[in-house]
């Protein structure tokens, strides 16, 4: 029979320490996303000109974990303890998390010996969706007002 070691470092055979180390490593990686390196890409050289891509990014992450432990109680006479007989209550642990990264190009910086200029990148799909939303909102309100007051 497999022996399951009880204690603060193990809950039902799950190594809690490793789990928390993984969580901390993920948290550190999450904090490091707030960096200028995540916004500006590696410059691309085209002759004497260097092109630097710039993007906006949004990182959302959350997680949690918990563990509980039981106790071992011995019933009967004291001799049961020496023979390893008794009633044990188990423990368990669990956790979960999730995250998402959204990124969108904003501009490109063109640096040449003639000068430096910033060229914006326009996402037409997002602009078009905003236009549809605005027009739909106006049309809906206009239609509702032109029908007049509702009778009960």
């Amino acid at each position: 029979m497999d022996k399951v070691v009880k204690g603060p470092g193990n809950a039902g055979g799950v190594d809690v320490h490793t789990t928390f180390e993984d969580i901390n490593a993920t948290l550190v990686a999450f904090i490091e996303t707030a960096s200028v390196d995540r916004v500006y890409g590696t410059p691309i050289e085209v002759g004497e000109t260097k092109i630097i891509p710039a993007a906006e990014n949004l990182v959302v992450m959350g997680f949690g974990a918990g563990a509980g432990y039981g106790s071992t109680e011995f019933e009967g006479d004291e001799g049961a303890q020496s023979t390893g007989e008794g009633v044990g209550e188990g423990g368990g642990g669990g956790g979960g998390g999730g995250g998402r990264t959204l990124s969108r190009p904003v501009a490109v910086i063109i640096a040449s010996p003639d000068g430096v200029r910033v060229e914006p990148v326009t996402d037409r799909t997002k602009v078009f969706m905003a236009a549809i939303t605005a027009v739909g909102f106006m049309a809906g309100m206009f239609f509702r007002m032109s029908r007049g007051p509702r009778s009960l």
Binding site: I31, A34, S35, R38, A54, V60
Partner: peptide, 22 residues
């Protein structure tokens, strides 16, 4: 290159939101 980042830490849990922009 200069970037600005906003970070929201969840007070009751681990994690949060990071928004980076040029």
């Amino acid at each position: 290159p200069v970037a600005r980042s906003y970070r929201i830490n969840f007070p009751a849990a681990r994690g949060g939101i990071v928004w980076n922009r040029p």
